[in-house]
Amino acid sequence: MPTCEHCERHVSDRFVRVFADDSGKVYACPNCSANAGIAEVVRERARHA
Rank of each mutant, 00 (worst) to 15 (best):
residue 1 M to T: 15
residue 1 M to K: 15
residue 2 P to T: 04
residue 2 P to F: 00
residue 3 T to Q: 09
residue 3 T to G: 13
residue 3 T to C: 14
residue 4 C to L: 02
residue 6 H to Q: 10
residue 7 C to Q: 01
residue 7 C to F: 01
residue 7 C to N: 11
residue 8 E to K: 15
residue 9 R to D: 08
residue 9 R to K: 13
residue 11 V to C: 07
residue 11 V to Q: 04
residue 11 V to L: 06
residue 12 S to G: 14
residue 12 S to Q: 15
residue 13 D to Y: 14
residue 13 D to L: 14
residue 13 D to P: 12
residue 14 R to A: 06
residue 14 R to M: 13
residue 15 F to S: 00
residue 17 R to C: 09
residue 17 R to Q: 15
residue 18 V to Q: 14
residue 18 V to E: 10
residue 18 V to P: 12
residue 20 A to M: 11
residue 21 D to E: 12
residue 21 D to C: 04
residue 21 D to P: 11
residue 21 D to S: 10
residue 21 D to G: 06
residue 21 D to K: 05
residue 22 D to I: 02
residue 22 D to T: 02
residue 23 S to R: 15
residue 24 G to E: 01
residue 24 G to I: 05
residue 24 G to V: 06
residue 24 G to M: 02
residue 24 G to D: 04
residue 24 G to H: 07
residue 25 K to V: 04
residue 25 K to R: 14
residue 25 K to F: 08
residue 25 K to N: 12
residue 26 V to H: 01
residue 27 Y to R: 08
residue 27 Y to C: 05
residue 27 Y to I: 05
residue 27 Y to M: 07
residue 27 Y to P: 09
residue 28 A to V: 07
residue 28 A to S: 14
residue 28 A to R: 04
residue 28 A to D: 08
residue 28 A to K: 00
residue 29 C to P: 08
residue 29 C to S: 07
residue 29 C to Q: 02
residue 30 P to A: 07
residue 31 N to D: 10
residue 31 N to E: 10
residue 31 N to Q: 13
residue 32 C to M: 00
residue 32 C to I: 00
residue 32 C to F: 02
residue 33 S to H: 02
residue 33 S to W: 07
residue 34 A to W: 13
residue 34 A to P: 11
residue 35 N to R: 12
residue 35 N to E: 10
residue 37 G to R: 13
residue 39 A to V: 11
residue 39 A to L: 14
residue 39 A to Y: 09
residue 40 E to R: 12
residue 40 E to F: 01
residue 40 E to Y: 06
residue 41 V to P: 04
residue 41 V to G: 08
residue 41 V to S: 08
residue 42 V to S: 06
residue 42 V to R: 02
residue 42 V to W: 06
residue 43 R to V: 08
residue 43 R to Q: 14
residue 43 R to E: 15
residue 44 E to N: 08
residue 44 E to W: 06
residue 44 E to I: 04
residue 44 E to G: 10
residue 45 R to S: 03
residue 45 R to G: 11
residue 45 R to V: 00
residue 46 A to W: 03
residue 46 A to F: 09
residue 46 A to T: 05
residue 47 R to N: 11
residue 47 R to E: 06
residue 48 H to C: 11
residue 49 A to P: 11
residue 49 A to S: 09
